[in-house]
Computed example of a mutant assay.
Amino acid sequence: MNNPRNNHILSALPQKEYQRFSDYLEPVQLSLNEILLESNRKIELLYFPTQGVVSLISAMGDGSTTEIGLIGKEGMVGTLQFLGDGILNSQSVVQGEGTAMKIDTEALQVEYDRGQMLQKLLLRYALKLFNQVSQCAACNNHHTVKQRTARWLLMLDDRSDHETLLMTQQLLSRMLGVRRTGVTEVAKEIQRRGIIDYHRGKIKILDRDALEAVACECYQVLKDWSTT
Protein backbone atom coordinates (compact mmCIF):
# COMPACT_ATOMS: atom_id res chain seq x y z
CA MET A 1 0.00 0.00 0.00
CA ASN A 2 1.29 3.46 -0.95
CA ASN A 3 1.07 5.39 2.32
CA PRO A 4 2.11 9.06 1.82
CA ARG A 5 3.11 9.33 5.46
CA ASN A 6 5.91 6.80 4.86
CA ASN A 7 7.79 9.69 3.29
CA HIS A 8 9.65 11.58 6.00
CA ILE A 9 8.91 15.04 4.61
CA LEU A 10 5.19 14.36 4.27
CA SER A 11 5.02 12.68 7.67
CA ALA A 12 6.57 15.76 9.32
CA LEU A 13 3.87 18.12 8.06
CA PRO A 14 1.28 19.32 10.60
CA GLN A 15 -2.07 17.62 10.05
CA LYS A 16 -3.85 20.73 8.76
CA GLU A 17 -1.07 21.52 6.29
CA TYR A 18 -0.83 17.90 5.19
CA GLN A 19 -4.57 17.63 4.53
CA ARG A 20 -4.47 20.68 2.25
CA PHE A 21 -1.29 19.53 0.53
CA SER A 22 -2.43 15.92 0.05
CA ASP A 23 -5.11 17.04 -2.43
CA TYR A 24 -2.30 17.63 -4.95
CA LEU A 25 -0.58 14.26 -4.45
CA GLU A 26 -1.03 11.30 -6.80
CA PRO A 27 0.22 7.76 -6.02
CA VAL A 28 2.53 6.14 -8.59
CA GLN A 29 4.57 2.98 -8.96
CA LEU A 30 8.35 3.22 -9.36
CA SER A 31 9.71 0.64 -11.81
CA LEU A 32 13.34 -0.50 -11.82
CA ASN A 33 15.51 1.64 -14.17
CA GLU A 34 12.63 4.06 -14.82
CA ILE A 35 13.84 7.59 -15.56
CA LEU A 36 11.82 10.03 -13.46
CA LEU A 37 13.67 13.22 -14.38
CA GLU A 38 15.88 13.78 -17.42
CA SER A 39 19.07 15.83 -17.28
CA ASN A 40 19.09 19.40 -18.58
CA ARG A 41 15.32 19.52 -18.96
CA LYS A 42 12.78 21.67 -17.16
CA ILE A 43 10.95 19.58 -14.59
CA GLU A 44 7.17 19.35 -14.50
CA LEU A 45 6.71 16.67 -11.84
CA LEU A 46 8.31 15.96 -8.46
CA TYR A 47 8.27 12.73 -6.45
CA PHE A 48 8.08 11.91 -2.75
CA PRO A 49 9.23 8.25 -2.50
CA THR A 50 7.28 6.17 0.03
CA GLN A 51 9.13 2.97 -0.83
CA GLY A 52 12.06 2.42 -3.18
CA VAL A 53 15.28 4.22 -4.08
CA VAL A 54 16.17 6.75 -6.79
CA SER A 55 19.70 7.49 -8.03
CA LEU A 56 21.03 10.83 -9.22
CA ILE A 57 23.31 9.99 -12.14
CA SER A 58 25.73 12.39 -13.79
CA ALA A 59 26.77 11.64 -17.39
CA MET A 60 29.92 12.81 -19.18
CA GLY A 61 30.31 13.69 -22.84
CA ASP A 62 31.99 10.35 -23.57
CA GLY A 63 28.99 8.43 -22.25
CA SER A 64 30.52 7.45 -18.91
CA THR A 65 28.32 7.84 -15.83
CA THR A 66 28.69 8.19 -12.07
CA GLU A 67 26.09 8.22 -9.35
CA ILE A 68 26.24 11.36 -7.23
CA GLY A 69 23.37 10.78 -4.83
CA LEU A 70 20.62 8.47 -3.56
CA ILE A 71 17.10 9.45 -2.58
CA GLY A 72 14.69 7.29 -0.62
CA LYS A 73 11.68 7.96 1.54
CA GLU A 74 13.66 10.57 3.48
CA GLY A 75 13.38 13.09 0.66
CA MET A 76 11.96 14.38 -2.61
CA VAL A 77 13.15 13.67 -6.15
CA GLY A 78 13.69 16.98 -7.91
CA THR A 79 14.49 19.05 -4.81
CA LEU A 80 17.57 20.77 -6.22
CA GLN A 81 15.87 21.52 -9.53
CA PHE A 82 12.77 22.89 -7.78
CA LEU A 83 14.76 25.22 -5.55
CA GLY A 84 16.99 26.27 -8.45
CA ASP A 85 16.02 27.12 -12.01
CA GLY A 86 14.23 23.83 -12.66
CA ILE A 87 17.17 22.25 -14.52
CA LEU A 88 19.98 19.96 -13.32
CA ASN A 89 22.62 18.10 -15.32
CA SER A 90 21.80 14.71 -13.80
CA GLN A 91 19.19 12.03 -14.37
CA SER A 92 16.92 10.69 -11.63
CA VAL A 93 16.65 6.93 -12.17
CA VAL A 94 14.80 4.34 -10.08
CA GLN A 95 17.39 2.09 -8.45
CA GLY A 96 15.02 0.15 -6.21
CA GLU A 97 11.43 -0.34 -7.31
CA GLY A 98 8.65 0.85 -5.04
CA THR A 99 6.07 3.61 -4.75
CA ALA A 100 5.90 7.39 -4.54
CA MET A 101 3.55 10.35 -4.43
CA LYS A 102 3.98 12.68 -7.38
CA ILE A 103 3.00 16.32 -7.60
CA ASP A 104 2.96 19.00 -10.27
CA THR A 105 5.68 21.63 -9.80
CA GLU A 106 3.19 24.49 -9.98
CA ALA A 107 1.07 22.96 -7.22
CA LEU A 108 4.14 22.46 -5.05
CA GLN A 109 5.20 26.05 -5.70
CA VAL A 110 1.86 27.32 -4.37
CA GLU A 111 2.31 25.39 -1.12
CA TYR A 112 5.99 26.28 -0.85
CA ASP A 113 5.25 30.00 -1.21
CA ARG A 114 2.99 29.88 1.84
CA GLY A 115 6.20 29.83 3.87
CA GLN A 116 4.98 27.18 6.29
CA MET A 117 6.47 23.86 7.43
CA LEU A 118 6.77 22.39 3.92
CA GLN A 119 9.15 25.17 2.93
CA LYS A 120 11.31 24.60 6.02
CA LEU A 121 11.43 20.84 5.46
CA LEU A 122 12.40 21.16 1.79
CA LEU A 123 15.15 23.67 2.54
CA ARG A 124 16.49 21.43 5.30
CA TYR A 125 16.43 18.39 3.03
CA ALA A 126 18.05 20.32 0.16
CA LEU A 127 21.05 21.06 2.40
CA LYS A 128 21.37 17.38 3.31
CA LEU A 129 21.14 16.37 -0.34
CA PHE A 130 23.71 18.97 -1.38
CA ASN A 131 26.05 17.66 1.32
CA GLN A 132 25.51 14.12 0.05
CA VAL A 133 26.30 15.09 -3.55
CA SER A 134 29.44 16.96 -2.45
CA GLN A 135 30.65 14.08 -0.26
CA CYS A 136 30.01 11.51 -3.00
CA ALA A 137 32.00 13.62 -5.47
CA ALA A 138 34.95 13.70 -3.06
CA CYS A 139 34.57 9.98 -2.35
CA ASN A 140 34.60 9.10 -6.05
CA ASN A 141 37.87 11.00 -6.43
CA HIS A 142 39.79 9.87 -3.35
CA HIS A 143 38.71 6.37 -2.32
CA THR A 144 39.22 2.89 -3.74
CA VAL A 145 36.66 0.94 -5.73
CA LYS A 146 36.32 -1.49 -2.81
CA GLN A 147 35.60 1.29 -0.31
CA ARG A 148 33.14 3.01 -2.64
CA THR A 149 31.35 -0.25 -3.43
CA ALA A 150 30.86 -0.95 0.28
CA ARG A 151 29.71 2.63 0.93
CA TRP A 152 27.24 2.49 -1.93
CA LEU A 153 25.76 -0.88 -0.89
CA LEU A 154 25.26 0.42 2.65
CA MET A 155 23.57 3.60 1.43
CA LEU A 156 21.28 1.59 -0.84
CA ASP A 157 20.45 -0.84 1.95
CA ASP A 158 19.61 2.04 4.32
CA ARG A 159 16.97 3.28 1.88
CA SER A 160 15.61 -0.06 0.71
CA ASP A 161 12.69 -1.92 2.26
CA HIS A 162 13.87 -5.20 0.74
CA GLU A 163 16.31 -7.69 2.24
CA THR A 164 17.76 -8.46 -1.18
CA LEU A 165 19.15 -5.72 -3.44
CA LEU A 166 18.77 -6.08 -7.20
CA MET A 167 22.08 -5.14 -8.78
CA THR A 168 24.00 -6.41 -11.81
CA GLN A 169 27.75 -5.85 -12.07
CA GLN A 170 27.16 -3.74 -15.17
CA LEU A 171 24.78 -1.45 -13.30
CA LEU A 172 27.08 -1.24 -10.28
CA SER A 173 30.01 -0.28 -12.52
CA ARG A 174 27.83 2.41 -14.06
CA MET A 175 26.91 3.79 -10.63
CA LEU A 176 30.54 3.91 -9.50
CA GLY A 177 31.94 5.10 -12.82
CA VAL A 178 34.51 2.28 -13.05
CA ARG A 179 35.21 -0.66 -15.34
CA ARG A 180 33.06 -3.75 -14.89
CA THR A 181 36.14 -5.92 -14.30
CA GLY A 182 37.07 -3.81 -11.27
CA VAL A 183 33.60 -4.21 -9.77
CA THR A 184 33.65 -7.96 -10.45
CA GLU A 185 36.91 -8.42 -8.55
CA VAL A 186 35.65 -6.39 -5.58
CA ALA A 187 32.31 -8.23 -5.43
CA LYS A 188 34.06 -11.61 -5.51
CA GLU A 189 36.47 -10.60 -2.74
CA ILE A 190 33.72 -9.28 -0.46
CA GLN A 191 31.67 -12.41 -1.10
CA ARG A 192 34.63 -14.71 -0.33
CA ARG A 193 34.92 -13.01 3.05
CA GLY A 194 31.28 -13.85 3.79
CA ILE A 195 30.20 -10.21 3.91
CA ILE A 196 27.66 -10.42 1.08
CA ASP A 197 25.91 -13.07 -0.95
CA TYR A 198 25.90 -12.18 -4.64
CA HIS A 199 24.15 -14.36 -7.20
CA ARG A 200 22.59 -13.52 -10.56
CA GLY A 201 22.14 -9.82 -9.97
CA LYS A 202 20.89 -10.17 -6.40
CA ILE A 203 22.91 -8.96 -3.41
CA LYS A 204 22.19 -9.77 0.22
CA ILE A 205 24.27 -8.21 2.99
CA LEU A 206 25.27 -10.96 5.44
CA ASP A 207 27.61 -9.04 7.77
CA ARG A 208 26.78 -5.35 7.94
CA ASP A 209 29.47 -4.53 10.52
CA ALA A 210 32.14 -6.05 8.29
CA LEU A 211 30.82 -4.14 5.28
CA GLU A 212 30.97 -0.89 7.24
CA ALA A 213 34.59 -1.70 8.10
CA VAL A 214 35.36 -2.05 4.38
CA ALA A 215 33.66 1.24 3.50
CA CYS A 216 35.44 4.59 3.67
CA GLU A 217 34.60 7.21 6.29
CA CYS A 218 32.20 8.84 3.83
CA TYR A 219 29.46 6.38 4.74
CA GLN A 220 29.40 7.39 8.40
CA VAL A 221 29.62 11.08 7.48
CA LEU A 222 26.64 10.74 5.15
CA LYS A 223 24.70 8.66 7.67
CA ASP A 224 25.25 11.27 10.38
CA TRP A 225 24.07 14.06 8.08
CA SER A 226 20.94 12.13 7.10
CA THR A 227 19.86 11.66 10.71
CA THR A 228 20.41 15.24 11.95
Score class of each variant (00 low, 15 high):
residue 211 L to N: 06
residue 76 M to L: 13
residue 12 A to S: 13
residue 190 I to S: 01
residue 40 N to D: 13
residue 64 S to F: 10
residue 185 E to W: 02
residue 204 K to E: 15
residue 34 E to K: 15
residue 224 D to T: 13
residue 86 G to F: 04
residue 51 Q to P: 03
residue 92 S to L: 03
residue 80 L to T: 06
residue 87 I to Q: 03
residue 15 Q to M: 11
residue 173 S to T: 03
residue 162 H to R: 12
residue 1 M to D: 08
residue 217 E to W: 01
residue 45 L to N: 10
residue 89 N to K: 06
residue 118 L to P: 02
residue 128 K to L: 08
residue 222 L to Q: 08
residue 87 I to D: 02
residue 44 E to R: 14
residue 217 E to G: 05
residue 121 L to D: 02
residue 188 K to R: 11
residue 116 Q to L: 11
residue 165 L to K: 06
residue 22 S to G: 04
residue 124 R to P: 01
residue 153 L to A: 12
residue 87 I to E: 07
residue 131 N to A: 08
residue 225 W to V: 15
residue 82 F to C: 07
residue 221 V to C: 05
residue 176 L to R: 02
residue 148 R to W: 04
residue 146 K to D: 05
residue 28 V to N: 12
residue 77 V to I: 09
residue 130 F to D: 09
residue 157 D to K: 15
residue 116 Q to R: 10
residue 13 L to E: 00
residue 34 E to P: 11
residue 203 I to F: 06
residue 86 G to M: 04
residue 74 E to S: 11
residue 57 I to A: 02
residue 8 H to V: 08
residue 200 R to V: 11
residue 75 G to F: 04
residue 124 R to W: 07
residue 61 G to M: 10
residue 166 L to Q: 15
residue 159 R to T: 05
residue 149 T to W: 01
residue 7 N to F: 08
residue 178 V to T: 07
residue 96 G to A: 07
residue 117 M to R: 10
residue 96 G to F: 03
residue 120 K to P: 04
residue 151 R to D: 14
residue 45 L to D: 08
residue 135 Q to H: 09
residue 177 G to R: 02
residue 23 D to G: 06
residue 60 M to D: 14
residue 34 E to Q: 15
residue 129 L to Y: 04
residue 41 R to V: 13
residue 181 T to H: 13
residue 209 D to G: 11
residue 1 M to S: 09
residue 210 A to W: 02
residue 194 G to W: 07
residue 45 L to Q: 10
residue 58 S to L: 09
residue 213 A to M: 11
residue 76 M to S: 05
residue 19 Q to I: 13
residue 103 I to T: 04
residue 101 M to E: 12
residue 48 F to T: 03
residue 181 T to D: 13
residue 100 A to R: 05
residue 68 I to H: 04
residue 157 D to S: 14
residue 140 N to L: 10
residue 135 Q to G: 07
residue 44 E to D: 15
residue 106 E to T: 14
residue 187 A to W: 05
residue 16 K to G: 07
residue 79 T to Y: 00
residue 84 G to T: 09
residue 6 N to L: 08
residue 90 S to G: 05
residue 67 E to Q: 15
residue 209 D to M: 13
residue 201 G to R: 10
residue 88 L to K: 09
residue 53 V to M: 07
residue 26 E to F: 12
residue 52 G to N: 06
residue 228 T to V: 15
residue 146 K to H: 07
residue 113 D to Q: 14
residue 192 R to V: 09
residue 13 L to D: 00
residue 148 R to M: 06
residue 129 L to V: 08
residue 141 N to V: 12
residue 124 R to D: 13
residue 76 M to W: 03
residue 41 R to N: 10
residue 195 I to T: 01
residue 215 A to M: 07
residue 84 G to E: 07
residue 131 N to F: 10
residue 90 S to W: 09
residue 54 V to S: 00
residue 91 Q to C: 05
residue 122 L to F: 03
residue 2 N to W: 03
residue 174 R to P: 00
residue 50 T to D: 09
residue 25 L to K: 06
residue 188 K to Q: 09
residue 24 Y to I: 03
residue 165 L to Y: 05
residue 73 K to W: 05
residue 167 M to N: 08
residue 77 V to M: 03
residue 33 N to M: 11
residue 217 E to T: 07
residue 101 M to H: 07
residue 170 Q to A: 12
residue 55 S to F: 10
residue 165 L to A: 09
residue 124 R to V: 09
residue 106 E to L: 13
residue 42 K to M: 12
residue 149 T to H: 00
residue 117 M to V: 14
residue 41 R to Q: 13
residue 93 V to E: 06
residue 91 Q to H: 10
residue 190 I to Y: 02
residue 80 L to M: 12
residue 198 Y to W: 14
residue 32 L to R: 14
